[in-house]
Design a protein around this nucleic acid. Structure first.
Lengths: 149, 149
DNA sequence: TCCATACTCTACTTACTAGATAGAGTTAAT
DNA sequence: ATTAACTCTATCTAGTAAGTAGAGTATGGA
């Protein structure tokens, strides 16, 4: 299960991508209301995304948030890794945070690992090749893109 | 990430499948030692698997555990669902424990859901079609099976 | 019968995390 | 100077993961 936080992050990014005439900002409170996300929680999330160079912000009156990266360059995988940490189903299969399983004799012959490696691969195939841009068009377009991917 | 508990369960089942001349049992302590699983923790796990009809046990002297189901009928998916609960990345995509996302306007047009539906499908394709039997043969055999699946 | 062995069940502990909430601080426009 | 917005850090609460503890129950054998 992905966290609420990651789900909120994705929805916020989609909202930003949708409303985006370049240079135009969205208020935290607008996104929060539109997407039914607890406002203070969303603040943290956007700040996090900002620190990771995915969005940027303007402060003060007339401030707000906007995408820093091109929507087509923001993959679901990147967002999940930013917010939730590693995607891999086992620590010994994580790219961003590899850790050997302490109780596992030898990694190469671990049957459990072998199976979950296939899961990880399949998951990454989807998440690393699906972007926020894939979510802003009309539903039908998105469907087509998904099938072609 | 799958839990340690689920990983232990899978390893225990593989150990049982490996040692299995029909009717022959393995002691909890044997499995625990062989697989480096905390013994008391493993007790709980095996009991759980027993209650779900995956293994069975004999009590008293000369007691122990053995598989109840055919290894080829025990899928990774079944074990994970038994031990960890739903596999789906979102509650609104779970078969065993569907729950609508309270903050989601309409499920059909939810872009996040659409993407994770593909993840769920890919994950299930692996986990529901890989069984304990796929893990007991020689490593090479397992590899071949995986490629053919 | 009694004992040792091995599974069974329930409760508990401990540390960590998810999902917020709170509030003081800082920046920018008017 | 004021107000609107973002920024940062701390805190809270409930729940979960991972494991530990210990009393209970069944079985086979001396």
């Amino acid at each position: 299960m992905i966290s609420q936080k990651a789900k909120y992050a994705l929805r916020a990014l989609i909202a930003l991508a949708r409303s985006a005439r370049p240079g135009e900002v969205l208020l935290i409170s607008q996104i929060a209301e539109q997407q039914r996300i607890p406002r203070k929680f969303l603040e943290q999330i956007l700040l996090d995304l900002k620190h990771h160079g995915i969005v940027t912000s303007r402060r003060g009156k007339a401030g707000g948030y906007l995408l820093l990266k091109d929507p087509a360059e923001i993959s679901f995988g990147e967002v999940l890794r930013t917010i939730d940490g590693p995607i891999a189903p086992l620590p010994c299969l994580s790219r961003m945070a590899y850790r050997r399983c302490i109780d596992c004799r030898e990694e190469e012959s671990c049957e459990v690992r072998r199976v979950f490696a296939r899961v990880a691969e399949a998951t990454r195939a989807v998440l690393d090749h699906t972007t926020i841009a894939d979510c802003v068009g009309k539903p039908v377009e998105a469907e087509v893109r998904a099938l072609l991917a």
